[in-house]
Write a protein that binds this DNA or RNA. Sequence first.
DNA 1: GTCTATACCGAGATAGAC
DNA 2: GTCTATCTCGGTATAGAC
Lengths: 272, 272
Amino acid sequence: MSRPEPDSQDSLGAATRALADATAALTRMLGKQVHDVVPEVGEALAASLREASRGLADASDNVAKRAGSVRADERRRERVDRTRADLLDAAARVIAAKGYEGASVGDIAAEAGYTKGALYAHFPSKSAVMMALARERLGIALEDPALDLPGVTDDGLDVEELTAWLTAAQDDPKLLLSLEFLTYGLRNPDAAGELADLHVRSFEVAAAQVARLRARQRGATGADVVPTQDDRDTALAVVSVLNVATLEGRLTGSPDMSPAAGARIIERLLAG
Amino acid sequence: MSRPEPDSQDSLGAATRALADATAALTRMLGKQVHDVVPEVGEALAASLREASRGLADASDNVAKRAGSVRADERRRERVDRTRADLLDAAARVIAAKGYEGASVGDIAAEAGYTKGALYAHFPSKSAVMMALARERLGIALEDPALDLPGVTDDGLDVEELTAWLTAAQDDPKLLLSLEFLTYGLRNPDAAGELADLHVRSFEVAAAQVARLRARQRGATGADVVPTQDDRDTALAVVSVLNVATLEGRLTGSPDMSPAAGARIIERLLAG
DNA sequence: GTCTATACCGAGATAGAC
DNA sequence: GTCTATCTCGGTATAGAC
């Protein structure tokens, strides 16, 4: 289980997202009700909205990168990958909200502002979307240890930051994604191996961080320590609490299972 | 999150279960293939198998309870409730294996050796099955603290028993049920309140047990202690590890996230 | 690459015979 | 209470126009 990070978007990106959302909402509505009454009007509107959304997205891209530093073909390549990225981002939201089985490919495509046909041009099946999403989400955690064990810095454990991270994670719509990856791996033998590998590597990052932190607390330099069994056990408890405190906190709202409670016990675990 | 208990069945009960399984498998097969070829033969066979299964179940009941100690009407009442209980037990297995959305009411009914029609005579909807199941499974944990915090006895923490419990839980087909209750509550506002309540009460049982254990370790009598915040934090960590160690252990097979590792860190948590 | 249209199937739920 | 048959809907995936 890894944990999601809060989104960070510039204003243009946010506008693009908002327009895409509106487009998606309209697409969904049209598919269900308006279509039978005045099809041509609704479809023309949806098409123009989609076009506007694409244009905004391109503009966002162009602003984001310093002009001239990328060649034309690369930019075209990125334009192509953008759809894929948008679809995966939409998949993250929809699957987190409804679960893998509960989410339909139509839902995902519409959330991204596309149709099913477009999605199937990028992914061969629904399960392929799921695996691509898992590789992306669990993969970034491997590259950025701060996402794996929040609040653990070179100066020790930052309890404030840990609490803030837990609180944000509790409200994050994508919270349930990590759970979905876990259950998907448990229920689909084909995916189990790869997901297990991602989980193990993610855990090793966390264990290494715990080991460094504890070594430093004992006065050692903290560089290049190999985690002891006790470090690993501690890491297991920390990531367990990280996940359970946020999930149960959201469900129950109880102070006993809350970000604050989670931060307290994690602090104790890492101090002991 | 609560944890499932290993099944315990006498041999007659096991035979009943096996027959029901065979019946269910046949029912499924018939529905898909044989039905079109020789319908009357297959259906007659399925019907007789079902009847045999019911007979065996009744016999099992009669043997299980000392004869004469229950009145006739009570026994009839139990016969009626038996179907409901069988359906719920089948629902537990199927939903654990495929998830709530992935499990169909046909799957559940067939697993119990019945058809959809029978299920709908006992439950008004699929979601009602889910909630009845949650009440049953999370409810028994409230009445039997040993299921809530395994290995915690009056004499302290029994690490052997804890490890054994975790190992059994890791292999338990019903392991994923508690996760399913959690995500169902998170995704269905109508169910959130009741499930949250069950989770909170379950947690309070665990916290009380932690408090008693730690009080006794300090030399106090251990009777009627009210859990401190530190006790509650400890309980949060313990139940977190209990769940995560089994789930991740099953997925990864890693010794770092295993029943043994979970037992070690829980022991440390309860000693500190 | 994206859309529309559709094939095909299985889902949840209901009706009515027994 | 249980079964069979059926209704209606929505699912994944594909075909073919543009």
